[in-house]
Simulated scan of single mutants.
Amino acid sequence: MYVSECRWRKSSHSVEGSNCLYVAAGERDSIMLRESEQPEVILATTRTRLRTFIRAAKAGQFDHVAEH
Rank of each mutant, 00 (worst) to 15 (best):
M1D: 06
Y2I: 08
Y2L: 15
Y2Q: 15
V3I: 14
V3F: 05
V3T: 14
S4H: 04
S4I: 09
S4F: 02
S4Y: 05
E5C: 13
C6L: 05
C6G: 13
R7Q: 12
W8L: 00
R9L: 04
R9H: 08
R9Y: 09
R9K: 03
K10H: 00
K10G: 12
K10P: 08
S11M: 03
S11L: 05
S12R: 14
H13Y: 05
S14L: 03
S14P: 06
S14K: 09
V15D: 12
V15N: 09
E16V: 13
G17P: 00
G17V: 03
S18R: 15
N19P: 00
C20T: 01
C20P: 00
L21S: 09
L21Q: 04
Y22S: 12
Y22T: 06
Y22H: 07
V23N: 06
V23P: 02
V23W: 10
A24K: 08
A24Y: 01
A25H: 07
A25N: 12
G26W: 00
G26S: 07
G26Q: 11
E27N: 15
E27L: 10
R28Y: 08
R28N: 12
D29Q: 12
S30D: 13
I31C: 01
M32N: 04
M32Y: 12
M32H: 10
R34Q: 07
E35A: 15
E35T: 15
E37N: 06
Q38F: 01
Q38K: 08
P39S: 02
P39L: 12
V41G: 11
V41M: 10
I42R: 10
I42Q: 00
I42L: 01
L43F: 13
L43D: 10
L43P: 13
A44W: 11
A44P: 03
A44I: 13
T45A: 06
T45V: 08
T46I: 01
T46L: 05
R47F: 02
R47K: 06
R47M: 03
T48W: 11
T48N: 05
T48C: 04
T48R: 10
R51H: 15
T52I: 14
T52P: 00
F53A: 10
I54V: 11
I54M: 04
R55E: 09
R55N: 10
R55W: 04
A56I: 01
A56Y: 09
A56R: 03
A57R: 06
A57E: 03
A57Q: 09
K58R: 07
K58T: 07
A59M: 08
A59C: 01
A59I: 08
G60V: 09
G60C: 14
Q61P: 00
F62K: 02
F62V: 14
F62L: 04
D63L: 04
D63A: 10
H64S: 11
H64D: 10
H64I: 03
V65I: 14
V65N: 11
V65D: 13
E67R: 15
H68N: 15
H68T: 05
H68G: 15
H68R: 15
